[in-house]
Amino acid sequence: MPVKVRIPTPLQRLTGGKEEVEAKTGTVIEIVNDLDKQYPGIAERISENNKIRRFVNMYVNEEDIRFLQAEATVVKDGDELSIVPAIAGGISQ
């Protein structure tokens, strides 16, 4: 079973309008770079030098990766990875 990746509205132009795409298991950053092969341009929107951008929040099964192993967090079969832009003005947990 692959990993489910939830794509926020501003990035759906890159995924052909898809809200949810699939990826192979791996670390968060491996998945981001792998997604870029399917949907070119998406990695540089989310990350810079293999670091998730400061104003992009990533959640593995609803847990913020900053509370896990950040970019090195392993995402397993059947897990869900969510990409959520932080909004300037306070962000909900």
Partner: peptide, 11 residues
Amino acid sequence: IYVCEFCFGPL
């Protein structure tokens, strides 16, 4: 507007 369309940083 208040957020960067590209990297989601604050404007």
